[in-house]
């Protein structure tokens, strides 16, 4: 329905789009409008049907007890009430928050440290930056399987420790506390390189005169970085922080392959809970309520990025 409204809305719109030939009466203008509509229409229609409508469907289903087969019964806000009462759900939010916050601190901190080290334009620096960056282009699912083969009970680390006489394997993925640490480690390992690249791009715009001035004043490298360089790129650091948070709140693929949410739900993120538990358990109504809630949280964080970026643009313009 939304797309129909959108289309008729555009059809009634007078044609004033540029470019417009100097001559042309009402019919020519209408033709231009029709052509414009033909150019935006398909994209608007597809996006509406497969992105906007599903959000509406999710909101509707979240108010029902539907299991995917039966007739849906309207249950009001029961699913949302359950969302805050269900221990599995509240625990997964705790897990997600820990992963998002600690992971972001690790990625931004690591990214900043290596960016300061590798900001130069030499080939060696470019090589090390690529080395830090490459996991970013690999699917998180595959990285998770690779690290499971390294950290698992019969994985590379434990077999090596065994060879050196350690009798019991370390439960990197099977100890409730360690598993969360391992998940965060893999996330930081895979994601800090992206931050390195982001920060290096910003660092290369810091005027050389500033650094020279700091050097003339006798500032050490540490002092220059802390007092001059980092404050200069602070806006980029802020945006990167929120970007990392938004990405980590959605963590799913890596959890599937690295821990399967285990042991005992200790690494079960909210996205994982939605797809692997609620949805797979045919609790569609509840799963969509969780999905809607995740959308709201993601949107709030994403709006934060936009607001920060706008402020940054204004600061740059002013």
């Amino acid at each position: 329905m939304v797309e129909l409204a959108e289309l008729s809305d555009r059809r009634t719109a007078p044609a004033a789009d540029t470019p417009r030939p100097a001559v042309g009466g009402r019919s020519a203008r209408l033709r231009t409008a029709a052509v414009s509509l033909g150019m935006v229409g398909p994209a608007v229609a597809l996006y509406t049907v497969l992105t906007v409508v599903p959000v509406g469907v999710a909101i509707y289903l979240s108010l029902t007890d539907w299991n995917g087969f039966s007739t849906a019964v309207f249950v009001g806000f029961d699913n949302y009430r359950h969302l805050f009462a269900d221990p599995a759900s509240t625990r997964s939010w705790y897990v997600t928050a820990v992963i998002a916050v600690v992971g972001t601190v690790g990625m931004v901190g690591g990214g900043l440290a290596y960016a300061l080290l590798l900001k130069g334009r030499s080939r060696t620096n470019a090589f090390f930056r690529a080395l830090a960056y490459y996991p970013h282009v690999i699917s998180a699912l595959i990285l998770g399987y690779l690290w499971a083969a390294i950290l698992g009970t019969n994985g590379a680390v434990n077999s090596t420790l065994h060879r050196f006489g350690l009798s019991e394997p370390i439960g990197f993925l099977f100890d409730e506390k360690l598993a969360l640490v391992s998940v965060i480690w893999v996330i930081v390992w895979a994601g800090f390189g992206f931050n390195v690249v982001l920060f290096v791009a910003a660092l290369q715009t810091v005027p050389a005169e500033l650094l020279e001035a700091a050097a003339i004043d006798g500032a050490s490298t540490w002092q220059t970085n802390r007092r001059v360089v980092v404050p200069m790129i602070a806006p980029v650091v802020t945006v990167a922080t929120v970007l990392n948070l938004v990405g980590l709140v959605r963590a799913y693929d890596l959890i599937v392959s690295l821990t399967g949410g285990g042991p005992a739900g200790s690494t079960q993120t909210f996205s994982y809970l939605i797809l692997a538990r609620s949805f797979a358990g045919t609790k569609v109504g509840y799963a969509t309520a969780q999905a809607v809630f995740l959308m709201v949280v993601s949107a709030a964080l994403a709006l934060l990025v936009t607001a920060l970026r706008n402020r940054q643009d204004q600061a740059a313009a002013g």
Partner: peptide, 9 residues
Amino acid sequence: IPGAAVVIP
């Protein structure tokens, strides 16, 4: 809109 959330509907 996160992909994991929208894919169910």
